[in-house]
């Protein structure tokens, strides 16, 4: 039985952002890609969702204070 690491309680939901969404996001935040927090391409979850270096990963975390919060990371080598 193949299990998904994303089912683990500690792992929040990871999604790859589409190109158009990524552009919109960078415009909204007023930053360049490189200024985002990073995630390695060797990260087990990145491998699982199949993100490539240069992609932006959208992470929906459960937050202690805000219910849920959205975080973005840039995939790097």
């Amino acid at each position: 039985m193949k299990v998904s690491l994303q089912d683990h309680v500690l792992v929040p939901k990871h999604e790859i952002l589409k190109e158009s969404e990524a552009e919109e996001l960078l415009k909204l935040l007023g930053v360049s890609k490189e200024q985002l927090p990073k995630i390695k391409s060797t990260d087990p979850i990145v491998k699982e969702i199949g993100a490539k270096p240069g992609d932006i990963v959208k992470i929906t975390r459960k937050s202690h204070t805000a219910g849920f919060s959205i975080f973005y990371r840039l995939v790097i080598e």
Partner: peptide, 8 residues
Amino acid sequence: LGIEAARS
């Protein structure tokens, strides 16, 4: 489990 799990 990756960086996000480590953060939690």
